[in-house]
Design a protein around this nucleic acid. Sequence first.
DNA 1: ATGAAAGCGCTAACAT
DNA 2: ATGTTAGCGCTTTCAT
Lengths: 349, 349
Amino acid sequence: MATSKTNQPQRGVTVRRIAEEAGVSPTTVSLVLNGRGAKHRIAEPTIARVKDAARLLQYTPNDLARSLRKQSTGAIGVVFPHLLNDWAHHVMAGVSSVFDTANLVPLIVAHRGQLEREEAELNMLVRRRVDGVLCNPTHGDVERYRFVERQGVPLAFLGDAPDDFEPPAFTAWDPEAVATPVRHLLSCGASRVVYLGFSDPRRVTRMRRDVFVRCVREAGTDPDVSLMPILEQGQPINGVMSELFGASRSRPDAIFTLYDDVAMQAIDWLQDHEFRVPADVMVATMGNSKIGGPRGYGLTTMRAPVVDEGRAAADLLLARLRGETPPPGGVLVAGGELVIGRTTRGGPA
Amino acid sequence: MATSKTNQPQRGVTVRRIAEEAGVSPTTVSLVLNGRGAKHRIAEPTIARVKDAARLLQYTPNDLARSLRKQSTGAIGVVFPHLLNDWAHHVMAGVSSVFDTANLVPLIVAHRGQLEREEAELNMLVRRRVDGVLCNPTHGDVERYRFVERQGVPLAFLGDAPDDFEPPAFTAWDPEAVATPVRHLLSCGASRVVYLGFSDPRRVTRMRRDVFVRCVREAGTDPDVSLMPILEQGQPINGVMSELFGASRSRPDAIFTLYDDVAMQAIDWLQDHEFRVPADVMVATMGNSKIGGPRGYGLTTMRAPVVDEGRAAADLLLARLRGETPPPGGVLVAGGELVIGRTTRGGPA
DNA sequence: ATGAAAGCGCTAACAT
DNA sequence: ATGTTAGCGCTTTCAT
């Protein structure tokens, strides 16, 4: 066959093919199909011919070639640790609403808490030259995140941020939100409130703990470090619970947790060990999983503005793509509402 | 500056740059970095020099260029309607386990049930030249799916398949699974069982209904079409429930639903209307959301083998990529287990 | 108003 | 054992 020297597969319809069909040059085709025909004063009939040919041949542009040439893919990697509890779904609702207006497409990846996988996914996204990355950070060494930035791909964190990371591009639910459920517990008569947060050195995680401590102080109590045990993400909390509730004297009378799956674990443990919730121990938390809701555990919980968080994170990344410098303190999303469930009792008049 | 004619940005480190650094040609660099150095008998010291240079310059291959040249991206689009109820999470566990071994990476997209968005996402994936698409199909016109195949991108369906679609590449949980909960209801004494499935013409959806009908027949009852109302996905079921339970005579005594969110809606309605579950009406369903589980609604449910479904779907797509023809009847995944909850009573001795 | 040519970064065929 | 060259499909500059 009369074919080129190399034996490349020649699957698709290309601009060149359309150009031949319409009797014009590839340049013209490109111009027309990108809607810049009018601007370049391409004759109306030419435009029509090109468009017809494209339609006829079922032309589908090759975005690999396009991106390679334009040095931009219009894709944003969105990295989640998991797709559980509807969380990613609602985050993406916010994210997509922003990306839609900016003609960006999100490519979602989930690493299920495996560090090597997270690193591999980030790597993959960079190699595919996404224009940016949105990421809910896990803790541990930050080299994998630095790598992304070093390769010239803007990274914005969602939900928290590694400590000491430059640039400080992160959005998170305002840690002040912690105050509402904690104060609620105190106003319901709790005097020894356990704090079940995580103790890794992520920025917002730390700030939340600080807010908790402040609330306890405000109530006239000295914060008790034995009530703030060290919790590792993904670890069962049984050990910690035994220690807290094992001693017969000075037992806690309330638990505050940062995530409702932790609250549910705590409740399971308490009930297994004959503690009544909320009679003996009250529980309040942050989050809004269905299973935590009224038909499930009936948690008293601060419901997070998840969609807004997604939107804010996407906005922040967009700003970075425009070259703006992110605010040093991060972008804190206000909002959320306290939902009083069956795990706290009474309350102020 | 002494630069090329065009004013392209020249951000990254390229093979050429490494070639210069190591004093070899781009070919050699490519060979070495793709681990084919030994095979091509590149000298050890040369290999070392190239690798060192790559490391030194923090080289990150450009997969756009690579994919363009190789006419293959190693990426698979995975299309979900939503990321709710942990479903996508578990599906992806299965999918990833297969893709990992085949060096493919999944790019997840979610269209939240919006048809235009689904179409746009599929389009996007094709333009980015994914090597294949895995998709949980929604119903409606199938043109958007045909388009994918027509562009030469193999498509495999997960969970169900449009009717009359060629090729018949789909995997789904074996519809026979429907028999277990339905028979359970019947063996618990139900005689008028409502079927709340969907009535769109997807293949597995139809097959499930057939299994239901067969089970009812087996029990010696004639299937009653008034007990199989037409349900549209995403629509609230209040109207249907009113009709079913409004008439005072010959009320249903049990409900079988295909998805546990429908079961939960039904239960909510029943309780709002003073029907007791399971005393007046039993409910059984398929699915395994946390909120449907023992801590939530306590549904009697057939728990789906979701991870296996993901694995099977990925396997099927891989087979297609190898050029194999998918089995005409689809790939049916056996498994699942009946979990007896609080929404059915008694049961056989 | 349209076309020719270069080049994005990579790999493969074909030298040598 | 390594280099030269072409080309994947597109956009862009520059020329006409």
